[in-house]
Design a binder for these strands. Structure first.
Lengths: 174, 174
DNA sequence: TATTGTTATACTCTATAACTATA
DNA sequence: TATAGTTATAGAGTATAACAATA
């Protein structure tokens, strides 16, 4: 390859970068979204598969157990609904299945008989501890090529994204 | 929202950060995953809501249309299945609905009658162009607080995550 | 009257496996 | 025999609205 053609190649690359940048500026939000969607779909399919096979559980169920695990006194169903972003009506069905499996119990609150509090049973705590441990290992495995600095960086930056989205959503609620 | 509840929200965020820091070091993969999951759930619920209301469409359907939009000659159903991470059997059902809506057509390939190629119809192209434009606007809105540098940075770093996950998944296929 | 949770309903997605037509 | 796509089936999640009990 002659010096001349190398120059041309270099120019072409520069141009490409410039064009990319120009095209960027726009649509970065969209591209970031599509990338997150693709990653979460890929990973969650695998996680769901393993949860189903090894624990006969689903991701929304895991999510509920996780919320209850860190709230030893349990949570009202309404609060559980808010935290898991699952509607009230659907929380009932999820809780039904978890209760049938003996992982949670529902208790009516003394003092306000409208309120129901869900808690983990002993078996629920034990089962969730196993699930969480396995889950953590799976994630470590699935992200084994990503170095700690990158993880920490992306994690912190995504907080901005999360806050932006939740702010937009709350503000558009009318 | 009253000033009081705003303060409580701010306190909750601060507490989360402190607890996050304390727990750091370990489990970065898990925490990154949970954060991505929470963000994508939040955003995708809103996107799905708007797609349904404004276009009577779902996210998987949008995904299929997007793949076909950029492949003017259409795609085999098997390739569509691979790209959208939807099983072959379920692609059939999705394609049925899109075809019933007049957005795509299925054609048997000359030369190999086992193969079916899906393409956008004229109406499909027009409809998708509108959907994509609206979709881009929604994302810009939902991430309006995130600056361009952060977007670009996270976008590029997530490529690593994506590659790591897909490599792990492929390797564990046996 | 407002709030908490349940019930009812309809639809879509997801996963798996058996099956048909074609190569 | 292998491949491409379809059919069949079961189970869950999701969204919406009407409803009962309680405050």
């Amino acid at each position: 390859m002659s010096d001349n053609s190398l120059d041309l190649a270099t120019q072409a690359v520069d141009l490409e970068i410039i064009v990319d940048r120009a095209r960027d500026g726009q649509k970065l939000q969209l591209r970031l979204w599509l990338r997150m969607l693709s990653i979460t779909k890929m990973i969650s399919q695998e996680i769901r598969r393993r949860l189903r096979i090894e624990f006969q559980a689903t991701l929304p169920q895991f999510d509920i157990l996780a919320q209850l695990y860190r709230e030893r006194d349990g949570l009202r169903l309404g609060e559980l609904s808010r935290r898991t972003m699952v509607t009230n009506g659907n929380i009932t069905g999820l809780a039904d299945r978890l209760e049938a499996d003996g992982l949670i119990v529902r208790e009516i609150l003394d003092g306000d008989r409208r309120v129901t509090v869900a808690k983990l049973t002993k078996q629920g705590r034990e089962t969730f501890a196993e699930m969480a441990s396995a889950h953590e290992g799976w994630l470590r495995e699935l992200m084994s090529d990503v170095d700690q600095d990158t993880l920490a960086l992306v994690l912190s930056q995504l907080a901005t994204v999360k806050n932006s989205a939740s702010r937009s959503l709350v503000e558009s609620e009318d």
